[in-house]
Nucleic acid binder design. Structure first.
Lengths: 342, 342
DNA sequence: CGCCAATTTGGTAGCGCTACCATTCCTTCT
DNA sequence: AGAAGGAATGGTAGCGCTACCAAATTGGCG
């Protein structure tokens, strides 16, 4: 006599339990759950009743094994705590929350090598889609993405050569717009303060530089950067450095809002008038920018929407109707506020 | 003749490929990977070589199915973007990153019902451990946690009756400490401003109230709360409301640092002297608190450490040596700063 | 009325791995 | 010397589900 292995799952009901109770074959239950339209009205009702009664939930592992496809979105971001990526993840999460798809989160810590490692690991799960931050994957990562056999969405940035799909905006244009705004407002010795200096920050810097050169105002001494992770306190310190280097500084375009806030606080502390003596522009437009005193001009970016759009595109591709527009530029918005209103 | 189903996994190597190449049985490969000490030195080397050559990675789904245990930590937090929980998640992530365990993240949106739903879903995956925020689970959630059949760690708070293990601190004590500090500093008409008012905020409020009553200073009109999600802009608005209600207000203990920052900005805007006219205390001690001008007194909490500790405890329990101390209080720290230094 | 196609249902054989024995080959002890 | 125990390895039979095909049923049409 064959003794079935004692129920390892702690007695949770399986698809055969449901099938037995509903008086149908297991495969019909499977179909009723995944493609209800292929099952007759009546059986569907019976099966649903059995499912409800037993509290049946399909085992995602068995499903993934049998179908060679996990209902998982792999999501790679460079930071979990940076509000910018947290917002993107939230958008992804919310868009996925009433789908069967789960999220597999990976934190690359801004490291290409770690990204490669994670892509390798994620690949072994055959995810339904991959969403990765940025467009500067290493050649190895790119190859892994191309051979992943699933839709891939690069988010936060747009660029010329998508692996598959893209949702984001131009950081270069953002940097340029911010800088042009300062120039138009009458500032001349405009500094750039940037921490972390990941590829996106680099491009914001490039935009700054383009605008400054176009106006004949560029001076390398105006640029202050560090690879150190960004923070409000770092913003304060970097602003002091910048000011020590160029005492005639009359404006700053900051890498991001944290830095901008640090600059603002240091201005308060040193009794530097904003926007009169110094103009400040941030990047991302966190909620606090509009509340700060004076309120801080910033580039509003649509992080949550980027997450949502990325999921929408990936889901469409999974469903078989890949969007014809593979690169979606969600743009940005210059929010003019008191910190540059002189 | 039996035709094997065409390799669905896109030709990725399986454990039998490794076994064949190494000239051993599949089960020995499995063992070499999971319990190397049970396999002889020599076979271990051969197997490792085969693994490297083929680039083999075990399929986590097959593993989970066969062993009735997924290498997954289920993590439930009420918010993905709130810096506090992002830090906890980061701690969890970092502690798990060189273990085989993955993270399954769930966002409860501060809803008990959603927590129940997610616990139900997570349960169907037989996770290796569950980490949930807070100690105020609904009876249904509690039952689900108790019957999960895996270590459970409640984080962010400590309380009397853990489901299994706990890591956190006392929000009540935190609220009391903050308030007592204001009282000692000479403030008398001290308001409480709180948004969201989740159970942790409620307990901070209770701590505030206890301190105020002990000093004979409590007045219900000093308390301003709202269920609306917390933000810097909301902090500003609520402070205006509080001031309109009690013009003699001379201090505020804020639910969290965002609110405190909003209060500070409104003070600037309305030319209210801090700390002279109004004292401000925040909660959590985000980086910007020490940079703000004036710098803001706050209760430093150890979010990242809570995440790390929770994982350490769960891993120990999985390994079979459940820590004898099931409730770990990581405490908090009052950071005295300019905003209360009068 | 019979035939073909479409629709609905079911059976079988795995997916890639591990639990649970069984087997083999040594030691160690009586 | 033989029994007993231990260490290392392997075989078998699933885990719970779905891909693939087969079978049964229905409907349309010449």
């Amino acid at each position: 006599m064959i003794k079935p292995r004692s129920r390892r799952g702690g007695g949770r009901p399986t698809i055969s339990d449901v099938a037995r109770k509903a008086g149908v074959g297991a495969i019909t239950v499977s179909r009723a759950l995944r493609e209800p339209e292929r099952v007759s009205e009546e059986l569907r009702r019976q099966i649903q009743a059995a499912v409800d009664e037993l509290g049946y939930m399909p085992d995602p592992n068995a499903r993934a094994l049998a179908s060679a496809r996990a209902e998982v979105f792999g999501v790679l971001v460079p930071s979990l705590t940076n509000n910018v990526f947290a917002e993107v993840v939230r958008g992804i999460y919310d868009s996925l929350s009433d789908s069967p798809f789960r999220i597999q989160l990976g934190n690359t810590h801004y490291s290409g090598l770690e990204e490669e490692r994670l892509l390798q690991v994620f690949g072994s799960q055959r995810p339904a889609a991959l969403i990765v931050a940025g467009i500067d994957q290493t050649p190895v990562s790119r190859k892994l993405l191309e051979s992943a056999g699933c839709p891939v969405v690069q988010v936060m940035e747009t660029g010329p050569d998508p692996v598959d799909m893209m949702v984001g905006f131009s950081h270069l244009d953002g940097g340029r717009t911010a800088t042009e705004h300062l120039i138009e407002a009458g500032y001349r010795r405009i500094g750039f303060i940037g921490a972390r200096m990941d590829p996106r920050s680099q491009r914001r810097l490039a935009g700054y530089r383009a605008a400054m050169e176009a106006a004949g105002l560029f001076d390398p001494r105006l640029v202050t950067t560090t690879p150190v992770p960004s923070s409000v306190s770092l913003g304060r310190e970097m602003f002091r450095d910048a000011l020590a280097k160029v005492p005639t500084l009359d404006g700053v375009f900051c890498n991001n809002d944290d830095i901008a806030l640090g600059v603002l606080f240091e201005c308060h502390r040193a009794s530097i008038a904003v926007p009169k003596t110094i103009g400040i522009v941030g990047f991302n437009d966190l909620d606090m920018m509009q509340v700060a005193f004076p309120s801080i001009t910033s580039i509003r970016t649509h992080r949550y929407e980027i997450g949502r759009r990325a999921v929408a595109m990936a889901l469409a591709a999974i469903a078989g109707n890949r969007p014809e527009q593979r690169i979606v530029d969600l743009g940005f918005e210059l929010k003019r506020r008191e910190s540059t209103a002189r």
